[in-house]
Amino acid sequence: MFVLINLKAYPCDPVEIATIATDVSEATGVRIAIAPQATDIQSVAETGVETWAQHVSPVEHGSHTGSTLAEAVSRAGAVGTLLNHSENRLRLADIDAGLRAAERAGLETIVCANNPRQIAAAARLEPDSVAVEPPALIGTGTPVSKADPEIVTDSVEAASGVPVLCGAGISTGADLVAAEKLGAGGVLLASGVAKADDPRAALEALVEPL
């Protein structure tokens, strides 16, 4: 079970959470990764935690001021990237170009989508994984596995063999177990750890059932 913690732009200490994630991953054997802000990728990667970019731009080297170059996040220590998160939507052509940029840089990829129909379209672009995240549930503490389990099972079917992560509202160990039973190979979460009063306790409780 893969646990990817997206720090978004929350006012947390990315190095502290990365250090906690490293400790918990080593103690439990659970694969845990952190997706910090682009400017924090290097310092987070230096903790030894698996580090992901929150986004890469669908561009190559060139005149692209303000873009996040895939090769740059790779040099900083990222090993993967999210694409098309519900808070940073892309056109289909840009998702495809972003995937090709990530491939050039040797980055693993997860394409996010809202529902099984979008998951099917994303999977056809051949990312390493897809993540289903109904926007209405993001940050609510109510996981999609509880609110509408069929979204997960239908997404697994629609992905045609591409691994599926379950996102939106994930916050407890029970949520991880439910996602796994529905066929998800991992979870994507944010506030459940990044905004917790005690991130270490929150992350330990999250992975304990695994």
Rank of each mutant, 00 (worst) to 15 (best):
I119T: 08
A196H: 00
L182V: 13
G185L: 11
A123M: 10
L4E: 10
S160W: 02
L206G: 00
A45Y: 09
V59G: 00
E50P: 03
A18Q: 13
P143L: 06
E87L: 14
A178H: 05
P149V: 11
A179N: 05
T172A: 14
A38I: 14
D128T: 15
E108F: 09
L90N: 10
A121T: 10
T39L: 13
A123F: 07
L82A: 01
T47F: 10
V111S: 00
L125P: 00
K146F: 15
V79P: 09
P134C: 14
S86I: 07
G186A: 05
A194V: 00
E46I: 06
D128M: 08
P143Y: 02
T81L: 06
M1A: 11
R75N: 14
T109K: 01
E16W: 14
D175R: 03
S171W: 02
I151S: 08
A102D: 04
G169S: 12
K181C: 07
L4P: 01
Q54H: 01
L99V: 03
P143K: 06
T39Q: 11
I170R: 05
E46M: 01
D148N: 15
T51I: 04
A76V: 06
Q42T: 06
G29E: 12
A121W: 04
V44L: 05
A174R: 15
P11N: 15
D40R: 12
A179C: 07
H85F: 09
P209L: 11
M1F: 15
V193K: 04
A131V: 12
A131S: 11
A136E: 15
I151N: 09
T68E: 05
R100L: 11
G77P: 07
I20D: 11
D197C: 04
